[in-house]
């Protein structure tokens, strides 16, 4: 049986000359723009994306503990969204969910965030193209053209998106936010573009749990591809055929 990880691999024949040039352009942009702060995802972030990559996460639910929220704290600190005391309206780029198996009573805990779908419903329904996917599979919101209609929130099967209900404070220049617009996990695109892993993955590793793995799903030799090849995993709501970039083990 063909392992699921292989479905992420782009065939060389699919890599067009345009893809190749864009890839070269991305390198040039990185070189020329070193030290320049990324102000918006719509322009530079899209230009940097490497179509030869498909960034993804593998979450080992067996290693994730219920009392640990290191990933949530790290994301909040990194991206500048806070607990304002209004849990129903607060931004939740990542959240912890504790589950009980109805049949067996087995308890487990896992982090939920944007699943960075290959065929993302949020992108399909967005009237203004504010929801978009970079060439490397990272799904983002262009805050400049989001009109705050929230149709993407209606369409997302994972409840991964948040609407900014209040005036924002403590913004980070690399993670712009705006009252009246929709936002979600960016897979720490600003860190990924400089060669780092997302803040949640780094924080999870520091706790010793090591439940989160980040990497290139299109590189068959990457650690994440090898793990997906050798151990069973699944995508949430796989029945919808959205091909998420986030997969779970031991669920």
């Amino acid at each position: 049986m063909k392992p699921p990880a292989l479905s992420f691999h782009k065939k060389p024949s699919e890599m067009s000359r345009r893809d190749f040039l864009k890839s070269g352009g991305a390198v040039a942009t990185i070189t020329l723009a070193q030290g320049v702060t990324l102000m918006a995802f719509g322009g530079q972030a899209g230009a940097m994306a490497d179509p030869g990559k498909r960034w993804g996460l593998l979450i080992d639910v067996g290693k994730c503990t219920s009392d640990c929220t290191a990933c949530v704290t790290a994301c909040s600190t990194e991206n500048g969204w806070q607990d304002t005391g209004h849990p129903e309206t607060d931004a939740q780029w990542i959240r912890k969910v504790d589950l009980v198996d109805d049949a067996t009573g087995h308890e487990l805990s896992l982090p939920m965030m944007c699943q960075h779908c290959d065929d993302a419903p949020c992108i399909d329904v967005c009237p203004t193209t504010a929801s978009f996917k970079r060439a490397d599979g990272i799904v983002l919101v262009d805050k400049h053209i989001c009109i705050g209609c929230r149709y993407c929130m209606m369409a997302c099967p994972y409840k991964a998106r948040s609407f900014v209900h209040e005036p924002v404070r403590g913004q980070k220049t690399y993670a712009p936010r705006g009252q009246g617009t929709v936002e979600s996990c960016t897979l720490c695109v600003h860190r990924v573009d400089r060669g780092d892993s997302p803040a949640c993955v780094e924080a999870c590793g520091k706790t010793g749990n090591g439940a989160m793995m980040f990497g290139d799903l299109m590189d068959p030799e990457s650690q994440i591809s090898q793990a997906l090849l050798n151990y069973p995993s699944l995508a949430l709501r796989d029945d919808l055929g959205l091909r998420p970039g986030v997969r779970y083990q031991n669920l």
Binding site: R95, V97, D98, L99, V100, D101, D102, Y158, L236
Partner: peptide
């Protein structure tokens, strides 16, 4: 999101 499971703590 999680058919067959009940969320005991979540958002």
């Amino acid at each position: 999101i999680f058919p067959g499971f009940t969320a005991s703590f979540s958002f």
